Lab assay of single mutants.
Amino acid sequence: VTLFVASYDYEARTEDDLSFHKGEKFQILNSSEGDWWEARSLTTGETGYIPSNYVAPV
C-alpha cells in the first residue's frame, strides 16, 4: 500500500477531483496518469484525482 500525506489544502475544481485538507492521508490507487493521481482518502473514504505536487510520501 502506497501512502501519501497532504502538504496543503486543495479544493476540487471538477467532479473527478478530490478536495482535501493538509495532513489528510491517502492510498494511491493509480499514479500512471502524470501529475494527477487517483487516490482514496483514508479520512473520508472518498476516491478521486489529486494533484501529485500537493502530497508527500508518509
Score class of each variant (00 low, 15 high):
V1N: 12
V1S: 12
V1D: 13
T2G: 12
T2F: 11
T2L: 13
T2S: 11
T2N: 11
T2C: 14
T2A: 10
L3A: 06
L3S: 05
L3W: 10
L3C: 11
L3Q: 07
F4N: 01
F4G: 03
F4T: 03
F4P: 00
V5W: 05
V5N: 03
V5A: 06
V5H: 04
A6R: 00
A6V: 02
A6W: 02
S7P: 04
S7C: 15
S7H: 14
S7I: 15
S7V: 15
Y8T: 09
D9A: 07
D9R: 04
D9E: 06
D9P: 06
Y10K: 02
Y10V: 00
Y10I: 02
Y10D: 00
E11K: 11
E11V: 14
E11Y: 10
E11C: 14
A12L: 02
A12T: 04
A12Q: 06
A12R: 08
R13D: 08
R13A: 10
R13E: 10
R13I: 11
T14V: 07
T14R: 15
T14Y: 15
E15C: 14
E15W: 08
E15D: 12
E15R: 10
E15K: 13
D16I: 13
D16E: 12
D16N: 15
D16Q: 14
D16L: 14
D16G: 15
D17Y: 14
L18A: 00
L18D: 00
L18Y: 04
S19Q: 04
S19G: 07
S19R: 04
S19T: 09
S19V: 02
F20G: 01
F20M: 09
F20V: 04
F20A: 01
F20Y: 01
H21D: 06
K22H: 06
K22Q: 08
K22R: 10
K22I: 09
G23M: 02
G23E: 03
G23K: 01
G23T: 02
G23F: 05
G23Q: 02
E24A: 04
E24Q: 06
E24G: 01
E24N: 05
K25P: 05
K25M: 15
K25L: 15
K25D: 01
K25H: 12
K25V: 15
K25N: 06
F26K: 00
F26C: 04
F26A: 01
F26R: 00
F26I: 05
F26M: 06
F26L: 09
Q27L: 14
Q27D: 07
Q27S: 07
Q27P: 00
Q27Y: 14
Q27H: 11
Q27I: 15
Q27M: 13
Q27F: 13
I28M: 03
I28V: 09
I28K: 03
I28L: 06
I28H: 00
L29S: 04
L29A: 04
L29G: 02
L29N: 04
L29Y: 06
L29R: 03
L29W: 05
L29I: 11
N30T: 08
N30Q: 08
N30A: 08
N30V: 08
N30K: 08
S31I: 11
S31W: 13
S31C: 15
S32A: 12
S32C: 13
S32M: 12
S32P: 10
S32E: 10
E33D: 15
E33F: 12
G34D: 13
G34T: 12
G34Q: 12
G34E: 13
D35L: 11
D35H: 09
D35E: 12
D35F: 13
D35I: 09
D35R: 07
W36N: 05
W36C: 08
W36L: 07
W36Q: 06
W36F: 10
W37E: 03
W37F: 07
W37D: 02
E38S: 07
E38W: 15
E38V: 14
A39M: 05
A39L: 02
A39N: 01
A39F: 03
R40T: 14
R40D: 03
R40A: 06
R40K: 13
S41P: 04
S41V: 05
S41W: 02
S41Y: 02
S41C: 07
S41L: 07
S41N: 13
L42G: 03
L42K: 04
L42Q: 07
L42E: 09
L42S: 04
T43K: 11
T43E: 14
T43P: 00
T43R: 11
T43W: 10
T43D: 11
T43I: 08
T44P: 02
T44A: 02
T44Q: 02
T44F: 02
T44S: 10
T44C: 05
T44Y: 02
T44H: 04
G45I: 01
G45S: 04
G45M: 06
G45C: 09
E46H: 11
E46Y: 09
E46D: 08
E46T: 07
E46S: 09
E46A: 12
T47G: 03
T47C: 11
T47E: 08
T47F: 06
G48W: 03
G48E: 01
G48N: 01
G48S: 03
G48F: 05
G48R: 00
G48T: 02
Y49G: 03
Y49N: 07
Y49S: 06
I50E: 00
I50Q: 00
I50M: 02
I50C: 04
P51Y: 08
P51G: 03
P51R: 05
P51M: 06
P51Q: 06
P51W: 07
S52G: 07
S52C: 12
S52P: 07
S52M: 09
S52E: 03
S52K: 13
S52V: 09
N53M: 12
N53R: 13
N53P: 06
N53E: 10
Y54E: 03
Y54T: 06
Y54M: 13
Y54Q: 07
Y54K: 08
V55G: 03
V55A: 05
V55S: 02
V55C: 05
V55R: 02
A56R: 14
A56W: 10
P57T: 05
P57D: 05
P57A: 09
P57N: 05
P57G: 05
V58T: 08
V58D: 10
V58R: 01
V58E: 11
V58A: 10
V58N: 06
V58C: 10
V58G: 06
V58Q: 08
V58Y: 12
